[in-house]
Structures are given as C-alpha cells and as structure tokens.
Design a binder for these strands. Structure first.
Lengths: 359, 359
DNA sequence: GGCATTCTGATGTACGCACCTGAAATTCCG
DNA sequence: CGGAATTTCAGGTGCGTACATCAGAATGCC
C-alpha cells in the first residue's frame, strides 16, 4: 500500500472524509478512486471492487462543491416556453430570470426560447436545432408524436431533457417538472361539489360549465378528465356541459360564458381548466351573477388573485412557478453533472388557494 | 496596477468572471477583493469603494461551489424539537435525517435535540447550553419571556437562530421557518364555512367545536384566532364553542369530542388546531356521525391521510415538513456563511389538502 | 521457440478549478 | 522611527482530468 498523501493532508483519521481517504484505504491513487466513484471506465473489476468496498465501509460521499469546482465547465440550458401573453408562462419566465443568480453561481446560462407550442412542426424544428448549443432543455411539451420523436432524438444525442408544466410521458424525457394534472382536475371537481353542497329540497343539482384552453395540451385534457371523474363519481346530481375551447384567451372566454349563461338557465358553476379567467369574471359581472355562480380556476396571477379577493372566484387550483423553476434548475443541473435527483424534493404540489391562504 | 495572475489564469478577457478579474479591475490583490466582497474588516473605505465599483461594473457573483470549498470549515446545527409522540414533529425529525446527505455535502452536522417545549425553564436552560457546541439552532419556540431572552442571548453570542413551525416574533431570531398560522386558521374557517353552506330554510347555522393543543404555543393560538375571525366575519350563522384543550393527545381529544357531542345537539363541525385528530375520528365513529359532522384539521400524517380518504375529515390545512426542513437548512447555512436569503424561496405555503390532491 | 517491439489497458502524477485566510510584508501616520 | 492599519503572499479546500507511466499481452522477426 502506497502513500499518496502530502502536505498537511495526512490526517486520515479525523476531519471530514475525502476521496483521498478512500483511495488510501483501498490502496489506490486518487485518480483511480475518482474513476470508480464516478463510474468512468479504465479500471479493472478487482480494483473497482476494492474501492467500492472502501467507499461503503467509510461511508464516503463526495463533497458537491469540490466536484463542481473541479469540473470547471459551464452549462447552457434552454427553456422553451409558449409565446403569446399567457400570464402563467410569463411568470415562469420571470422566475427563470429571477433565478439568474442561482444559475450563474453554478456556471449555468439559461436562455428562454419562445415557441409556438401549438404547432408541432415548428416546435420539433426548434428542438432539432438545440444540440451543440445547449446541454439541457426544459420544454412545455405538446404531447404529439412528432414532438415525442424530437425529444427522443435529443435524449439520444446526450442532452438532458425535462418537460415543464405539461408532460409528454411516452417520450424519453428524463423528468417531468409539474403537477399531476388529473389530481388537479379532481381537486377542482371536489371543490365545486363541496362548495355547492347537496341539492336543496326539491331542486336538481344544476349544470357545471367547463372552459378549457385547448385540446392539444395534455395538462388541460387531464384536468378535464379528473374534474369529470369526480363529478360523475361523487356529485352525480351535477351535470357537466360540453367543454368549450377558449384558447386561454379572456375575450373568447367572455363570449363563451355569455353564451353559456344564455343557453343554460340552471348553470350553477364554471370551471376553467386554463388561463384567461378574467373573461369569465367579466361575463358574470355583466350579468350580475358574481358570487351567484361558483367559479373555480387555475393558477395564481394578478387577475385571478383579484377575483379571488372580490369573490368572483371561490378557489384556485395552482402550481407554484417558483418551485417549478427551481426544481427545473436542480434537476437539469443534477442530470448534466450526474448527481442524484431527490424525488421527494422535486415533487410539485397541487395547491388549493382560497382567499385566506393567498401567498 | 499590478499583475496578480499566474500560471494559465492570465485570461482576464474571456471565460467566466472570477474574483481575480474583479481584483485586477480594481487594482488590488485577490485577498483584498475577497475581503470587500465578503464584508470582512481590514480594508480602507477607499479601496472598498474601488472594489465595489468593479463588482458592479463587471457584474460579478462569486461561484458558490468555490466559496464553499474554500471556506473549508464545518458547521454544527441543532434542531430543538418537542419530544413526545407528536407525529408532525416526528416527520420533521425524519426529514432532517433524510436530508443528512444534503447537510453532509455542505459539511453540516445536524443534531436533533428533544426538548420539553412546554417548560420554559428547562427549554431556556437547554438553549443556554448550546454555545460552543453549535453554530446555529432551529427551535420550535415557546413564546415566553424567558425563551425570548434565551434566544436573544444566543444571537448576541453570534449564533444563528431560526424558529421553526412556531415563532417567537419579538425575539431577535434571524428568521422564522413556518407558515402564517393566522392565515392557516382563516383558511380552515373558510373551508368550514363554505363546506357547510348557507343555513337551510328554517334552520339555524349550528355550532362549531374547536379542539386545540395548548394555549402556550403561539401557532395554535394564532390558528384559533384566524378561524374565529373568519367565522365571525363571514359565517355569523355559525357559533364557535369554547376551545377545548386536548394537548395534541388522541385520547384526550376523543373524550373532549364525546363530551362535545353529548352537550351540543346542534354541532355541525369540528376544527382541530393541532395534532391527535385520530381521537376525533374515533369519537365520531362511535357515535355513527362520520361524514355527518364536518371535520377540518391540520397536518398530513398517516392518520389524517386515512381519515381524509375515508371521509372522516373533509380537508386538512397543512405545512410541508420537507420544505420546512430544507428551508431551515438553507437559511441556517446562509446565515453562518453570510450569504443572502432569498425570501421568496423560503416562504412556506399554507396548503389545503383534500382527498384529491393528497401528495 | 526466443526475444525485441509495439500496443493496449490500467494506474498514477500533477496541476487547475475559484475562492478563503493566517502570516508576512508594506504603507501610513503621528 | 515605531506601531497600527492596510495590503499582499502563499498555501490550503476536495475533486476532475490531461498526460505520463507501466505492466502485460500481442505481434513480428530471425
């Protein structure tokens, strides 16, 4: 067994455990120990086993900071977000900018790329243009065969790929940062059912209108599904109207609700699976039905916050863009540096926001 | 202006920005630049200004990993948690243990100290014994003059002090890791009010029972306050009964609810501000009143999860112990290393948990 | 078949990553 | 000129990695 210590570092006994200690214990050099610990090739099975044993026996864990410093390379991540004034996505973008310091401190540059998430071809082309320029991507995925293929190509090419907010589960993306949208829809359904209460004597339950953004983003579809499920199972006295597509646009949503009010005398509640809830509030205000018709929507924005406070909306089901951006950063960073992902920490909660627990 | 570069590092132009660049730009040595950046003494006002200017101009941010590595010292934190089988506190403890890796990777050792949080003298004595052994403390604070004084002494002595779950706002603790308990109580109040719905024709609203842990922990008191506030403001048809102290003990709570049921024919809901909700479920089951009486409680534990699923409890207002432990770690670490605390990241949300958004 | 030579895979050496810090050196100022 | 204030020097911090080294296998040649 040789001695590879020098200087003042020859205290294998006290102090924190370093790779040097492991190497000494295994009777190999630092470089070899490092190779084994990081699973790099060029080590015989026998010595690898010795090192592994030493790691186990001593309970060694590499110091993240030292590893990061030594790696001495920087990373470039792209965040592909839908363009068009979607407020929630703007929040995501703002949060990414706000996290610039965190990224910089880890040698990470993040570029926000606007995309037309509804056009699979364009999006696929944008994805295909990423390799070489970036080490990792987070994208709001359109769940479409062409996009899945594009994602798989990226992963194949060694890029870290993470879906954000809306998933593409059948692709090979390494991680999904976002909420369980079926659970989110179910939560909205339970809120509507419970807030409305059981049908009054002699009355029927009434009708529930559903406004949705678009059929092509998976998140909205899943929310509708979860919502419908709960209403059918638990509140059969309530009837769901056909979902109306407002493309997350307040103006369209306003029109949809106007029509809904005209067509549906027994309307008791409206659920919006996406953005543009303001339009709903406006239509209700016009009709003098604020607080008369129960509204539940998604995401906390200045507009929904206001409507929560003035009572137009009873509750919001939300995800925290800050958490999501931080999770995205941690996950991508862990992926490119080969660190472990702590699943529990990366789980994004489905939040219920009432007027009283507004952050 | 001198040259302090050596080796291959003489590229002040390209590559990422380092302290060396700042030092060169300011015309001082690395050591001096470092002192300024970290606010350590021994630098004249004039040179400090030069360095600050350079930092601003170049937009320098120290690389977290390098700083951490170089600081080369380890920290010892204590987490002072109430003993006695409180499930939520056990979760906190478990989360601390689960985060051991994270702490280790930052050279942080955490020791969990059980305390009798209800005895101010003992707790104060325990706090007084910390200096020398620890660099930072997180404690579930009893809001009591003696404890405040003990906390102030610790801070005075240079220890980082953070309150956890229950605050002592008038002390000099540097940070509180936990939820806004008034908001939590209000949220519970809104849930009860909305779930019960407006009074039916010809009926009065009914009575709401309140079970609380103890009067001496600030968190429970604040929850009661928030709860009562909302009920009085928004649901005046509901009457709150006097809070009954069950000391977070399921058995006591069971007895309290039994008595409550016997004494209060018009009981429509029960709110538990603390632990031991199982006892409530048991008492209701005995009386065959599960789902007949609306229950809202706090914290997600195996027991409350079960009761949420079987319908005994309609909703939980909760805080995420995982988030809290991670926040505690980050904050204490930031405090001892003199880093900045990102307030937005450390805000702990008041969560509403229904059966459908159970994590 | 014996021996020199090339090649290959395994292992070690030494330096760099960017910052921190105690001791040494320098400057300042009365 | 002496002591305090300020600044610089130099040596860590633990790990990654290009390059050097080395042993042994494979090859080639006589």
């Amino acid at each position: 067994m040789q001695e590879y210590v020098r200087g003042m570092n020859n205290q294998t006994s006290d102090g924190p455990l370093t790779l040097r200690d492991v190497a000494a214990a295994a009777g190999v050099s630092l470089a070899t120990a490092d190779r084994v610990v990081n699973g790099r090739p060029g080590v015989s099975a026998k010595t690898a086993r010795k090192v592994h044993e030493a790691v186990q026996r001593l309970g060694f864990r590499p110091l993240a900071a030292a590893a990061e410093l030594a790696r001495a390379r920087s990373w470039r991540f792209a965040a592909i977000l839908p363009g068009g004034g979607n407020r929630f996505m703007m929040d995501i973008a703002d949060n990414i900018r706000a996290q610039a310091g965190w990224f910089r401190a880890r040698r990470i540059g993040v570029e926000i790329v606007e995309a037309d998430v509804f056009d699979a071809d364009t999006l696929a082309a944008q994805l295909a243009a990423l390799p070489g320029r970036f080490d990792g991507v987070a994208l709001v995925a359109l769940d479409h065969p062409r996009i899945r293929a594009a994602i798989d190509d990226l992963v194949e090419g060694g890029m870290a790929v993470v879906t954000l907010v809306s998933d593409a589960p059948s692709s090979r993306r390494q991680h999904y940062v976002g909420i369980d949208n079926i659970a989110a829809g179910r939560t909205a359904g339970s809120l509507v059912g419970r807030f409305l209460g059981p049908p009054r004597n002699g009355e029927t339950g009434g009708a529930v209108g559903i406004i949705t953004g678009s059929g092509s983003l998976r998140d909205h579809a899943e929310r509708r599904f979860g919502f419908g499920q709960v209403l059918a199972e638990e509140y059969p006295h309530l009837t769901c109207l056909m979902p109306a597509e407002g493309r997350d646009d307040p103006d369209r949503n306003r029109d949809l609700v106007r029509r809904m009010l005209a067509d549906t005398p027994d309307l008791v509640a409206i659920y919006n699976t996406g953005e543009g809830s303001v339009g709903i509030g406006e239509a209700l205000a016009e009709a003098g039905l604020v607080r008369k018709i129960l509204c539940v929507g998604h995401e906390l924005t200045p507009a929904t916050r206001r409507m929560l406070l003035d009572g137009s909306f009873a509750a919001l089901v939300a995800q925290d863009p800050g958490h999501e951006v931080r999770s995205m950063g941690r996950v991508l960073h862990a992926l490119v540096t080969g660190q472990e992902i702590v699943a529990a920490q990366e789980h994004i909660r489905v939040q219920v926001i009432l007027r009283d627990n507004l952050p």
